[in-house]
Write a protein that binds this DNA or RNA. Sequence first.
DNA 1: ATTTTAATGTGTCATAAGTACATATTTATT
DNA 2: AATAAATATGTACTTATGACACATTAAAAT
Lengths: 237, 237
Amino acid sequence: MAKSLQLKTAELEKISHLDYFNIALSVDLVIFGYEDKELKVLLIKSDLEEFSGMYSLLGDLVRPDEDLDSAPYRVLLSRTGMDDVFLEQVHTFGSIGRHPSGRVITTAYYALIDIRHHQLQVDSNELHWHAVNDIKKLAFDHKLILNTCLEQLRSQIMEKPVAFNLMQDKFSLRELQEVYEAILDTKLDRRNFRKKIAVKDWLQDLNEMESNLSHRPGKLYGLKKQFKRKSSKALVI
Amino acid sequence: MAKSLQLKTAELEKISHLDYFNIALSVDLVIFGYEDKELKVLLIKSDLEEFSGMYSLLGDLVRPDEDLDSAPYRVLLSRTGMDDVFLEQVHTFGSIGRHPSGRVITTAYYALIDIRHHQLQVDSNELHWHAVNDIKKLAFDHKLILNTCLEQLRSQIMEKPVAFNLMQDKFSLRELQEVYEAILDTKLDRRNFRKKIAVKDWLQDLNEMESNLSHRPGKLYGLKKQFKRKSSKALVI
DNA sequence: ATTTTAATGTGTCATAAGTACATATTTATT
DNA sequence: AATAAATATGTACTTATGACACATTAAAAT
């Protein structure tokens, strides 16, 4: 029997419904945010001895009375107070040895958060935003999960207006471009970027300008209503 | 408690490791094949009373001692004798009511099979090939799973040389085009199709021609070696 | 041997999209 | 009034896409 399947009872108790004849199912969340011109991801200190000092993704076991796709919303709401968030399933990871405490298969989701809007109290919850580019390793197979989700995000931002979930409701084209550059980790040409975005017909011209700048202000735009999620309330925790 | 969670013990016994406090995890396979200019999918008569007379995908519970991604290979080998098959994970389905006998979350994979090469004895195993276009409904949420996998297949055939897994080792450009047309369920322009394929650099000119035709024969091509899976042995069952 | 059948093989033109690149304009500050 | 720092915008080149027609080949029929 594989080494990964040998575990102490103490560890085992940490995870309910976990034994060697029942596979446990969890969800893990790659929660992306954007701040200081960097793409960030929300991490928590791992609570397993094996990974002491290391960070991991937010996750939890799926409950028997909830839909799989509801679980990540529950985790997000209960751990961060965030509601009405963009979430998408990416991939399910299930190698035998991926969890040191037993057999746990996990479905990974990525979420996109407007950090400023949600006013997350990160430090009180042992949660911290990390620049994606600075993350070298994570607990479990979470670095692989992060990379997989990042790839999916990158492949989607020109197809669907998902990147707007990282931004406030009003933004200039410069801010939008900076978000795209942060996600793709590359510099973009301003004129070509604007052409590409313009042709998508995602933007609503708000007839407002930036203010309080020491240079020429840009026009402000919003995402067209038809692409927005219904509400934008953030629960206070 | 949800209706879907009420079940008779008789039904429950059919699925090992299945109860209401342990979610069971399965894999389901959308096995595509190509024959008679049609895209086919391999189905089996459902063994559940609720779905008597209906067809369903091949699937099985994931075993505690196998990787998630190994399970579909095991299912394919044990149920059809097929080995060395192209398989790709697509999505995980986990709504509460999706399985009438209890809580089963399933990870869907699609597989691509060269029907003629594998010489599957389908009838002896209650397995049957069905034209994808003729499938109106399936047991469980398998129609949804089929549609999701079909979409994924369609979005990948111009990106990666996956469609070749449906074909024999030698083929003419006409045959290749017919496979693409069957997958996309659309007619393609011959000249434009050849241009698009040519630029991918996937094809090896075999310097052979079709034979035994009552018209001008076409050149035969194969997929370039670098894109092929290692072996091509099919086990006899 | 010639004709017929049924397919293969190939190129051009028009339109759309992608990429590289430079100058005039606007606002606040000095 | 001049400066600093950004916005706004267009063109030329290349590449991809989509519509479309004709000469060629091999076998079969006459």
